[in-house]
Amino acid sequence: MSKILIIEDVEEARNSIRRTLEMDGYDVITAPEGKKGLNLIQENILDLVITDIFMPEMEGLETIRRIVKSKPNLPVIVITGSIELSFLEVGLQFGAVSGLYKPFTPEKLLSAVTKALE
């Protein structure tokens, strides 16, 4: 079963995304920010990371950069609540495989996940 890490600073959002993935049969772990997320990446064998861009402690883009550097085979999906169009593109530039704007439907998320895991 594929294991997915969600890095998202808002707890409720972490939970709702987690539920969506769990209901679809995925194994999910979460982290509230980049640093903790990176630790979990080192400690676990993961198939996918979904991360928000704007987070305290470690900015999402920096997190993406480090993940891509340390685990080049680990796909990253970037999500953001920001309405600035350019941020997602920047996320992609930093190495994310795809990006989603909040609010996204479960279908959109699951389809992106499926695609990233291929």
Binding site: A13, T20, G81, S82, P103
Partner: peptide, 18 residues
């Protein structure tokens, strides 16, 4: 503010579907 509202909308939507 849109950013702030986006996230609750995200999980309210997710949760309602759930």
């Amino acid at each position: 503010i849109a950013h702030e509202i986006n996230t609750p909308i995200q999980y309210v939507g997710d949760n309602t579907r759930f």
